[in-house]
Design a protein around this nucleic acid. Structure first.
Lengths: 191, 191
DNA sequence: GTCTATAGCGCGATAGAC
DNA sequence: GTCTATCGCGCTATAGAC
């Protein structure tokens, strides 16, 4: 990881450093200076490649959203029954105590207030939600899941459980509540 | 509301202003100066009543946690069946697009890193979770809810759905996904 | 209890040398 | 493409007058 960072171009290192800091501290809590230090880049270098904090954050957010979408698609588009794919999505490896690198940004007033910054967040969460709904629909069609379920509703519940699981985990300093919430949801889906 | 603020003591106005700003902008994004302006108090006045930003935030967070616990207890300890009380909790009036004044703080690195600031957050979310579990247990005991459900798990799922619902709503700028997630969860519980 | 003054530092950004 | 210097401002806090 360190050697990988070393071999990156300056813009790449700036984007990766911004992603880390945005994840950890949010937009309001992330300063250009901190980004430069983490990336090992100078002031002038940063402002040469990016117009400013907002521009750099935009590149970082877009990449994190892309990565999240790909990770979700990898499990939701994988093999197995509908239930198995939803379970795989819920149980996929996550750095639970760090929170969701994308969902976290919704608590940032300056991200939500800026249409450009909010767009990738809204887009990817909407896309994942739609993708989960498709899988639920498949499960309903095949009789694997109850026909009384509304796929769009269940998809929102699944995504909300994950996003809320992060909150509960961070509140306690342990990932346990996340896993507990996931087990509860899976039990409800299996019934 | 305005006249209510006007008639408050200076410490009261400072705490209330801090609660609003913490809710809106988080701990990192809230400055003593902004608090003073919102409270109509001077610099010296604030530092006379409170030791600093952390001390003031502590008072504000404790009050918000207390208020959240009371609001939850009001519906969960009310009348009706177990399902009805959980539904009442899920559907209780919320300023969805503003997010949860308590849950929001878990995304703040300085709150999570400070045991004193995190304690009220952890305590109240744990208490509400326990209270929901009790209600689920009652539902299981009375046969109203499936006996295969683990009350602690379902409680975590219920709370996570609410906390995650805020995230989805803020991502889209609409409360609709929150309500959709809640409907999905209620459908699963009713099945 | 509240005020003003001041501190030392970091913010986000620009300018211009190299 | 990267550097250092500088800007104007806000941060969190302290000091001491009133």
């Amino acid at each position: 990881m360190y050697s990988a960072v070393m071999s990156m171009s300056t813009p790449e290192r700036l984007i990766e450093a911004t992603r880390e800091l945005l994840w950890e501290r949010g937009y309001v809590g992330t300063s250009p200076k901190a980004v430069q230090q983490a990336a090992g880049a100078g002031q002038g270098s940063m402002y040469h490649h990016f117009a400013g904090k907002q521009d750099l954050a935009l590149a970082a957010i877009r990449r994190s959203a892309e990565e999240l979408g790909a990770a979700a698609e990898a499990v939701l588009g994988g093999g197995g029954s509908a239930y198995a794919r939803i379970e795989a999505y819920l149980r996929r490896e996550r750095d639970v105590l760090r929170g969701c690198p994308v969902g976290r940004l919704t608590m940032d007033p300056e991200v939500v207030a800026d249409p450009e910054l909010r767009a990738p967040v809204e887009e990817v969460l909407g896309r994942v939600r739609g993708r989960i709904a498709e899988v639920v629909q498949e499960g309903v069609d095949s009789g694997e899941l109850s026909g009384s379920l509304d796929p769009a509703e269940i998809a929102a519940t699944v995504l909300a459980t994950v996003q809320g699981g992060y909150v509960l985990a961070r509140a306690t300093g342990s990932r346990a509540p996340f896993d507990t919430a996931v087990r509860g949801l899976l039990a409800l889906l299996a019934a």
